[in-house]
Amino acid sequence: MRGSDLPQSEGEKGGGVGAKGLTEASEGGCALVTGASRGIGAETARLLAQDGWTVGVNCRADTDGAGEVVRQITEAGGKALMVKGDVSESSDVDSIFEQLEQSVGPVRVLVNNAGTRDDMLAISLGDDAWLKVIETNLSAAFRTTRRALMPMVRGRWGRIVNVASIVGMRANPGQANYAASKAGLIGFTKTVAAEVARRNVTVNAVAPGFIRTAMTSDVGEELLRAIPARRAGAPGDVAACIRFLVTPAAGYITGATIPIDGGLSA
């Protein structure tokens, strides 16, 4: 197939978000959401399960939270399993993928959501705090992506969504480590997207603004005045975008970073 023989995009075929297109993609495979015991990851797992994906609900330590997400999904008629492991450790990444491949099938959707904060002005930031955030937010996404890519490339279909942040695009004093990790994630997203686009594997990022989760529980209300929408977002606002990006209809979107921030970065 060359130039003029380009295959029709899934959108051109009229698949849209059509059940047939999604069913074909999800059959025999699964979705992995890292850091899915709460917040954006948990809501993403629930929505993907609603769309027919068998979801690997990853957690590092919060097995109660991940177990609750799995329970909610299965009670609603969906399929999910808990896959425990620290995605900042290469050995854990391998075991997570092997567990899913052996019990369900290849990972066709990867949502790199696991993240952490350890805030301090750069002048006072310690090496440990720097490395912890970089390893969890950026290096882990690299390791899971590297592991996921070959089956996606060989299967000629894949969806990778990286949960970045608007802090990766604009300054936020006190979060130099977090900002660096999220800016790195955005750059990583673009380059990997360009590498694998020919194989119908898309790689995109979402950049949440101020979203009400456990990770932002200490953020002050004065921030709301800076948001054009004058309100915080909810995990579902981010999960809905991720849900769209993994559908066949989103097959021509790749290398993009989509802010979900009530206009904060406009």
């Binding site: 070959m150 490339v153 060989r154 020919r198 194989r199």
Partner: peptide, 12 residues
């Protein structure tokens, strides 16, 4: 039009 990604796949 065989690129480096194709060579990685060939290797596999």
């Amino acid at each position: 039009d065989v690129d480096s990604l194709d060579l990685v796949e060939l290797g596999q």
